[in-house]
Design a protein around this nucleic acid. Sequence first.
RNA 1: GGCGACGUCGCCAAGUGGCAAGGCAAGGGUCUGCAAAACCCUCAUCAUGGGUUCAAAUCCCAUCGUCGCCUCCA
Length: 465
Amino acid sequence: MIRLYNTLTRKKEDFQTLEPGLVKMYVCGVTVYNDAHVGHAMSALVFDIVRRYLEYRGYKVKHVMNFTDVDDKIINRANQLGIPPLELSNKYIADYRQNLLDLNILPATATPQVSKTMPDIIKFIEGLIERGYAYPAPNGDVYFRVTHDEDYGRLSARKLDDMQAGARIEIEEQKEHPMDFALWKAAKPGEISWASPWGQGRPGWHIECSAMNLVELGEQIDIHGGGNDLIFPHHENEIAQTESYTGKEFARYWMHNGMLQLGGEKMSKSLGNIISIKEFISKREADVMRMLVLNGSYRAPLIFNDETLDAAEKGLERLKSALRPATAQGAESAAEAAAALPAAIETVKKAFTDAMDDDFNSAGALGQLFDFVRAINTARDAGATAAQLQPAQDTLRELTGVFGLRLAEKTSTGDADKFIDLLLEVRAEMRQQKQWAMSDLIRDRLKALGVTVEDSKNGATWRWA
RNA sequence: GGCGACGUCGCCAAGUGGCAAGGCAAGGGUCUGCAAAACCCUCAUCAUGGGUUCAAAUCCCAUCGUCGCCUCCA
């Protein structure tokens, strides 16, 4: 039984889907007006791991991720650049898709956009007005009437009265209540807009997700995810809109990832302390970012700095070490050396699943994998054969695959391999003749070229690093 | 100011009532001409102060501290 922490109840709950074997999962995507950063990557990775694990456990997952491609900031940025807003957002949508591919994140099964969901959004707003949950203002805006929603504030655990209405938001004369939020914004002159019963305008931020959910997944979904900075007001408002519209419970489980921390602060576009995904990928292997996420708890803040990244990179190397080939040539002790592996395989599979079942405890599961790595390496050192190592290495591949790790060894780009082999053959001859200085020089020079040479009693091995 | 989450070894971090996983770093060792890798060994009583309990890192209260939200934000 999978258990997961539900923000709505602030407890871990047994996971049961609305339909057997099917998970409907909606995860808030990004507003596309500039390069996505590693904080976005964290969120995307968290839910990619959730999805991969659910699939590993036999569920079919409908995974919807939206693009907010109509928004104030997109409009402002497009104006600065002198290009149409949708041209700008389309560029960044393409960029973001590439970022996700680079990070080995499985493509969502649907990726709706605001600009392509307009009729459904308008219909949704009309429905809310009909039911008395929304009202058009004289200026052409339409607002949600929070006082009509008895349990408004349920998700973020706050009450309307506690929110010091008006303290940090400007009192809007058009609104009945200061906490009422816009479903539809009347167009300013020259702004991109769509026709509606309330005049030219565009949707407010929250309504898009309610509408896209309805279109893509229906009235009720299993998991709704996103960063914990979206709990209020975004997700709170989504619940208010959808439940007021359908009269049914919206999402059964609300999952929120913690914020990525850079220099003790949340990384965010508005703070400007940003490292883009593109920049990260140019400097580190994508698996390193995933490893950093896996080593932490998805709900807790993730500390992102050179030290934690270096550790993640080393940990990755350690996982890879278990995948290296057998070194012995069928030694007699091989059977004994490999004897412990079948049991280790059973142990790690169970422990891995137990940990992940408990609210996707990837750090706990990862610890189990490291224990397994030691078992494999010990067997190899003791002389296990390739055939004996194979099942264990396959298991490790399978489980790290559930995590979405690629564990790719770097490979040669050209015909270098055979020349390196030749060089090492010659070097082996030199070592026979104890020409240590020259042997070491070759090893050092190859290292500088990205080739790691390791000598052992069975001869030298090498790999790209 | 209000609300929420959290505070475990030098760093990251699992563990939510019964002798404190794992990774990185560090020290010692095996192997080795050296180096590297791998393997073995060493390395914490859980922010502080009270309380509940046979038993608490784990539950309760207080204090201190950190982060997030309350405005756009993954």
